[in-house]
Amino acid sequence: MLQKEEIRRDNINDTFSNFKVELWRYQGERGALIPLLQSAQETYGYIPESAIDHISEIVGIPSAEIYGVITFYSQFRLKPMGKNIIRICDGTACHVNASTAILKTITDELQIDSNETTEDGLFTLQTVACLGCCSLSPVIMINDETYGRLTPKKVQQLLDEYRNADGNGG
């Protein structure tokens, strides 16, 4: 279990992670499990086993039950993610406006299927139900940016942009 002193010291050194702060703030309030898992995922990009054990000790919920919660929600990952997370929308409006062609372009281009990560660790692809940008369909989200009115060509350009950004150290 994380010692409060240790976290405070980290705090002073300004090297503490979001996750540790959340753990430190936790004071036994009810219903904190999901926010704690969310901040663990934000810190590590996924939920590592060690984080589950930490959380289990602190909130007093058995690890097995925490696994149950993690696997119930589509947001949570138990495996590391790529540097950029592509979420392709396959909601009704996107589906009607040929999101399958966009998905195919991405899977062809990156040589991965949905829920997979590229070998170089640059991209993880996820299919989601609806991003709520139906009027601009088809839509994808890369990290927290949403891109609309896409065509296969535009998607290729976008992927190139992200690849180049990485090449330049971005």
């Binding site: 609806c130 709520g132 139906c134």
Partner: peptide, 11 residues
């Protein structure tokens, strides 16, 4: 938790 695909008024 506007989950219906195709609805975005709450967002």
């Amino acid at each position: 938790d506007e989950g219906d695909p195709g609805a975005f008024m709450d967002r």
